[in-house]
C-alpha cells in the first residue's frame, strides 16, 4: 500500500517563508503563526552523498542520502533509491515516497525516500 507523505511544513502567515522542520518563530520575520502545508509534487535533487560508514542501527553496506526541494519549495533530507551516485545529478527530478527508512526497537520508522526520474 502506498503511504501518504507524513511530513508537515510550515508557511509563515506574515511573510510566506516556508519552514521544515518546525520552528516556533519564523526564521525571517519572527512571526508565530504558520499555515501547515504538505510538500507537493515531485522534487529537485539539491545535493547527495553515499555514506559507507553507517551508524549503529544500519546493517547495509551503504546508504545514498540527499537533500531535495519540492515543487512548492519545501526542502528536506531523505534517502535516495539508487545503487550508486553515478546515476545522480544535482538538479535532477526525483519522485518522493514515504517508506521505512530504518528499524528502531524492532519497528519500522517511516520517512522520505526519493526515486530518480528519467
Amino acid at each position: 500500500m502506498k503511504k501518504e507523505i507524513a511530513i508537515t511544513a510550515y508557511k509563515c502567515k506574515k511573510c510566506g517563508k516556508i519552514h521544515y522542520p518546525f520552528h516556533d518563530r519564523c526564521l525571517d520575520c519572527k512571526g508565530r503563526e504558520f499555515e501547515k502545508i504538505k510538500p507537493e509534487g515531485n522534487a529537485k535533487l539539491l545535493t547527495f552523498t553515499t555514506i559507507f560508514n553507517l551508524p549503529w542501527g544500519f546493517d547495509q553496506r551503504y546508504l545514498v542520502i540527499g537533500v531535495v526541494e519540492f515543487e512548492n519549495k519545501v526542502k528536506a533530507m531523505g534517502q535516495i533509491k539508487a545503487d550508486s551516485v553515478d546515476q545522480l545529478k544535482i538538479g535532477m527530478k526525483v519522485k518522493p515516497t514515504w517508506e521505512p527508512v530504518r528499524v528502531q526497537y524492532g519497528e519500522d520508522v517511516y520517512g522520505l525516500k526519493f526515486e530518480p526520474m528519467k
Binding site: P55, I65, V67, Q79, L112
Partner: peptide, 29 residues
C-alpha cells in the same frame, strides 16, 4: 558504529537523524 551514531545525535532528531545521516555524510553533501 556507536561513535558514529553518537556524533550523529547532533543532527535534527526528526528531519535528519532517522535517515542514517552522519557528520561525514553532511560533509560529503
Amino acid at each position: 558504529w556507536r561513535a558514529t551514531d553518537f556524533v550523529a545525535t547532533m543532527t535534527h532528531p526528526q528531519a535528519e537523524y532517522p535517515y542514517g545521516i552522519t557528520l561525514p555524510g553532511m560533509a560529503g553533501m
